[in-house]
Computed example of a mutant assay.
Amino acid sequence: MLHNRLLEVIALHVELLDRMRNQGINYDDIINLYAVLHALQVHAQAIIDYLLYTCALMGISSETPIHCIDELSRTGLISNDNADLLRRIVRFRNIVVHEYGAIDIERVRGIVESRFMALPLILLGIFTVSCGVWALLIHDFCIVLFLYLFFTSHFV
């Protein structure tokens, strides 16, 4: 399923960014900076695709990722705090993709240091609630368990 694949991409890039951070990132080195920016961009794009796919499955017409987030928040599928986090991710991705000159290295450093580990679980919760299908709950429980074990082994 597409949702599962997108969660895998998101979790992979969380792990990749965590490994990069633990090894020490030289933000003055253009190759290191571009590697970090690319990982953040792929991570953010997978989140955007996940949200848009969820909105489509729910029959929510959303012209933009921000509108999709607003609608998911309005329906109660995501909290206001999670909606704010997701909006910031979408906006940061837009800066990375469209406005290279406007990238603030300290902001990039802050994002990498923030450990956005909970995102796959937030997104999985959105999907599980939005589908409301019992068979998916069992399947998704296995994914949640996997992600929990993954995160506790990599981030503790």
Results as ranks from 00 to 15, higher is better:
Leu51Cys: 13
Arg93Ala: 02
Ile78Phe: 08
Leu52Gln: 14
Glu99His: 04
Ile95Trp: 01
Leu136Gly: 08
Asn4Gly: 05
Met58Trp: 00
Leu86Thr: 10
Phe151Leu: 15
Val42Leu: 11
Met117Val: 14
Tyr148Pro: 00
Ser114Leu: 00
His43Gly: 01
Val144Pro: 05
Asp70Val: 02
Gln41Val: 00
Arg109His: 03
Tyr34Gln: 10
Val90Glu: 04
Ile47Ser: 04
Leu51Phe: 00
Asp49Ala: 05
Glu71Met: 12
Val144Gly: 08
Ile25Met: 13
Leu6Phe: 08
Leu52Met: 15
Glu71Asn: 04
Ala11Ile: 06
Gly125Ser: 13
Ala102Arg: 14
Asp81Arg: 09
Leu17Gly: 00
Val14Arg: 05
Asp84Ala: 04
Ala39Gly: 10
Leu33His: 05
Leu16Ile: 03
Asn22Pro: 11
Ile122Cys: 01
Leu121Phe: 05
Val9Tyr: 09
Phe146Trp: 15
Leu17Met: 06
Gly101Trp: 10
Leu124Trp: 02
Met117Thr: 08
Cys142Asn: 14
Ile111Trp: 03
Ser153Phe: 14
His67Val: 11
Tyr27His: 03
Thr128Val: 13
Asn94Glu: 08
Pro65Asn: 06
His67Ser: 06
Leu145Phe: 11
Arg87Ile: 13
Met58Asp: 01
Ile111Tyr: 04
Arg21Pro: 06
Tyr53Asp: 13
Ala83Met: 11
Leu147Tyr: 11
Tyr100Ile: 12
Leu121Glu: 02
Ser114Ile: 01
Ala39Asn: 10
Arg74Ser: 08
Ile105Trp: 05
Asn4Trp: 09
Leu37Gly: 06
Phe127Thr: 07
Val108Met: 09
Asn80Thr: 12
Asp28Tyr: 11
Ile60Asn: 05
Phe146Tyr: 15
Leu145Arg: 15
Ala56Ser: 04
Leu77His: 12
Phe151Gln: 13
Ala44Phe: 08
Leu145Trp: 13
Leu52Pro: 00
Asn26Ile: 14
Ile111Glu: 07
Cys55Ile: 00
Val90Lys: 02
Ile103Val: 07
His43Phe: 05
Leu137Cys: 12
Arg109Val: 05
Gly110Arg: 10
Ala135Phe: 12
